[in-house]
């Protein structure tokens, strides 16, 4: 299956490079055509690929780790927290002075949110309290974002709340690609090596430890991995929700529900979903280009309802 998914992702990547209001920029044959491809379309398509992959993978990791099919960076507030931290770095001018401040802030925000959520999980509470915690974190982060934006001297800043809560990858240049890619790749490598530990956790924390998994260290590794991926992705794009929810669900049955084996296909499906969504928002005949995050919510929120309704109480109550 992974091979076919890879082909799909690559095909969508090529389509993404080919879609834009300038149609076929290579026909210009000069540095302007080159700039359209290299400075506008390559960053956009590549960010779509990487961010989608990072979100799909993060969803799979969080769901496996928390043993909860609804855990998703957007739903449980990890993305919003990363977004808030990135907003602080961006509008304060810190990111303009020190470029890496943007992804680093996002990563810190995401990691803090994951750690916060883990305290709720460790307190032995179930799905409902995890989701309520997510609701609370989302609300707090949105309010804080509004607060920071309202204090910005840029007259347009205050209208940008929606941009950070429903992200977009339009017109990010290569610099954004450069500051986010290493972190997303590092995060992915960290969590991809942890598949066996996540598998063991499907028997619960105690059994996993008896199988030789050092769950404390595993948790630290996954927190860092998810923090790196979601933090870097969100700091350049804003919150792109539900990708981490949908992607693992689409592949889980195909891999026999093994949480470790879900990770790679979920990453590929996440990349395909974001690339496809980003192509669609460019092609949709709306007066203004729809934000990518708005589009994923449009598709993803009903999916959440579907998952909640379909999920057997046995798998949700745990």
């Amino acid at each position: 299956m992974n091979r076919w998914l890879l082909v799909l992702v690559l095909a969508l990547y090529v389509v993404s490079l080919a879609v834009g209001p300038a149609l076929w920029p290579w026909r210009l044959g000069n540095e302007v055509g080159w700039a359209i491809v290299w400075e506008l379309r390559v960053p956009r398509a590549t960010l779509g690929l990487l961010i989608g992959g990072a979100l799909g993978l993060s969803g799979a990791v969080l769901q496996g780790w928390l043993r909860n099919p609804l855990a998703e960076p957007g739903v449980i507030g990890v993305s919003a927290c990363a977004s808030f931290a990135a907003v602080c770095a961006f509008y304060s001018g810190l990111a303009a002075a020190f470029t890496l401040a943007l992804p680093l802030a996002g990563i810190a925000g995401a990691a803090i949110a994951v750690a916060l959520l883990m305290t709720a999980v460790r307190a032995g509470t179930g799905t409902v309290s995890l989701l309520l915690m997510g609701v609370a974190i989302n609300a707090i982060a949105a309010a804080l974002i509004a607060l920071v934006l309202a204090s910005s001297p840029n007259p347009f800043a205050y209208q940008e709340i929606s941009l950070w809560l429903a992200g977009s990858i339009t017109d990010r240049d290569l610099r954004y690609l450069a500051i986010s890619t290493p972190f997303m790749v590092a995060g992915a490598l960290l969590v991809l090596g942890a598949g066996r530990g996540v598998d063991a956790l499907s028997l619960g924390d105690n059994a996993a430890r008896s199988l030789g998994v050092e769950t404390g260290r595993l948790g630290l590794r996954l927190t860092l991995g998810v923090g790196l991926m979601v933090g870097a992705a969100t700091s350049v794009a804003g919150v792109i929700g539900f990708v981490g929810l949908i992607a693992p669900h689409l592949v889980r049955a195909k891999v026999g529900y093994k949480p470790g084996a879900t990770m790679v296909p979920a990453m590929l499906v996440g990349a395909a979903l974001v690339l496809a969504a980003d192509i669609l928002v460019r092609l949709m005949p709306t007066a203004f280009e729809l934000q990518l995050g708005v589009f994923t919510s449009l598709v993803g929120a009903p999916f959440l309802v579907y998952v909640v309704r379909r999920a057997r109480s046995a798998w949700l109550a745990a």
Binding site: R67, G256, Y257
Partner: peptide, 9 residues
């Protein structure tokens, strides 16, 4: 009270 969290084979 061991349990399984995913519908594994």
């Amino acid at each position: 009270g061991a349990s399984v969290y995913w519908p594994l084979l």
